[in-house]
Simulated assay, not measured.
Amino acid sequence: MSSDDAQQGQAPQSGADQAGAAGEERTVRVVLVDDHRMFRTGVQAEIGVTERTRVEVVGEAADVDQAVTVITATRPEVVLLDVHLPGGGGVEVLRRSATMMADPERPVRFLALSVSDAAEDVIGVIRGGARGYVTKTITGTDLVNAIFRVADGDAVFSPRLAGFVLDAFASTDAPPVDEALDCLTQREREVLRLIARGYAYKEVGKQLFISVKTVESHVSAVLRKLQLSNRSELTRWAAARRLV
């Protein structure tokens, strides 16, 4: 990802430079949420040298429950959030953090940091309340810049990902909200997509780190909510919405 992914035409400037320009040594407190420990370690090494970057990593989490617990305990200014997490995904973290995001005094803001550049992932977390979305190819300098901008309330996207969001909300071909899809939880959507792609229940369980019995329960809930009768109807429903 090039430097304009996070800056969009602005000259690169580090977090420390931004703080200096404001006449103070400002530090932004950050929580890292990603289910890959080695990736979290790498990000910590890249951006967590506070005296240089003015970013202080105050917590880490590997799944949805851990994320909500750590975010609630530390109340960071910015959360770097992976989209695909055990326990319901990044959207579930956003849903459970809605009160903290809406806090007028100390809002917690979210910046999605993911390997995925799929339009549905980008749109999903933005609709959930994230202030931006960058992919894991971003440089350390640009990530620090993005963190400071999100902490200030700005929206940060790479140009191509910003296009997804604009297209989604400007499109006249379909409504911006699919009420049927929105009635499903994030985990139910994940199960739906995998089942519609032909995965067996055991394979779905392995992918999502849940039991076969839990998969069966989610499938039953999806069929009931969507008023579908069987797996074939579910697959056709998902294909019609380009979810597979």
Rank of each mutant, 00 (worst) to 15 (best):
150 V>Y: 14
55 V>G: 05
55 V>D: 03
54 R>Q: 15
182 D>M: 15
102 A>L: 05
237 W>D: 10
93 V>M: 04
240 A>Q: 13
130 A>Y: 08
138 I>T: 08
131 R>H: 14
108 V>C: 00
19 A>S: 15
230 N>R: 07
38 M>C: 05
62 A>M: 05
73 A>D: 01
16 A>N: 13
218 H>I: 01
195 I>F: 06
28 V>Q: 04
180 A>H: 11
144 V>K: 01
118 A>T: 09
95 R>N: 09
201 Y>V: 07
5 D>Y: 08
111 L>K: 05
185 T>S: 12
59 G>V: 07
209 F>L: 08
244 V>N: 10
215 V>Y: 10
162 A>G: 14
234 L>Q: 12
228 L>C: 09
193 R>C: 15
209 F>Y: 14
226 L>R: 09
18 Q>V: 01
40 R>M: 10
86 P>K: 07
125 V>Y: 02
76 P>Y: 01
12 P>F: 05
54 R>C: 15
211 S>E: 09
195 I>K: 15
50 T>P: 06
9 G>F: 11
118 A>R: 04
156 V>W: 10
146 A>P: 03
137 T>V: 09
111 L>V: 06
6 A>M: 02
187 R>K: 02
96 R>W: 00
165 V>N: 02
31 V>R: 07
194 L>G: 05
127 R>C: 14
229 S>R: 12
133 Y>R: 03
210 I>V: 11
58 V>P: 09
156 V>A: 04
55 V>C: 06
140 G>N: 04
154 D>S: 14
207 Q>F: 11
42 G>L: 07
165 V>R: 00
119 A>W: 03
76 P>W: 02
210 I>P: 00
18 Q>C: 01
124 G>T: 13
77 E>I: 10
195 I>Y: 07
120 E>M: 14
241 R>K: 14
120 E>N: 12
160 R>N: 08
29 R>D: 08
61 A>H: 08
200 A>R: 15
63 D>N: 15
68 V>R: 00
125 V>P: 01
185 T>H: 07
59 G>A: 05
116 S>V: 11
127 R>E: 13
34 D>V: 01
67 A>T: 07
59 G>P: 08
186 Q>F: 12
105 E>N: 15
111 L>A: 07
160 R>V: 09
84 H>N: 15
63 D>Y: 10
70 V>T: 13
147 I>N: 00
160 R>S: 10
22 A>L: 11
194 L>W: 00
210 I>K: 00
231 R>V: 10
63 D>G: 11
55 V>M: 03
22 A>Y: 06
130 A>Q: 06
142 D>Y: 04
200 A>P: 11
52 R>W: 06
149 R>L: 13
29 R>P: 01
86 P>Y: 06
195 I>C: 11
113 L>C: 00
206 K>L: 13
55 V>N: 03
15 G>C: 12
243 L>N: 15
130 A>P: 07
204 V>K: 08
121 D>Q: 04
26 R>C: 02
120 E>T: 13
196 A>V: 14
84 H>V: 15
48 G>A: 09
169 F>S: 05
179 E>K: 07
33 V>C: 01
223 L>A: 09
163 G>W: 14
237 W>R: 10
232 S>E: 13
191 V>S: 03
87 G>F: 07
118 A>V: 14
134 V>C: 06
119 A>E: 04
163 G>A: 11
137 T>M: 05
200 A>T: 13
70 V>Q: 11
4 D>N: 12
72 T>L: 02
32 L>A: 02
105 E>R: 15
6 A>G: 02
6 A>N: 00
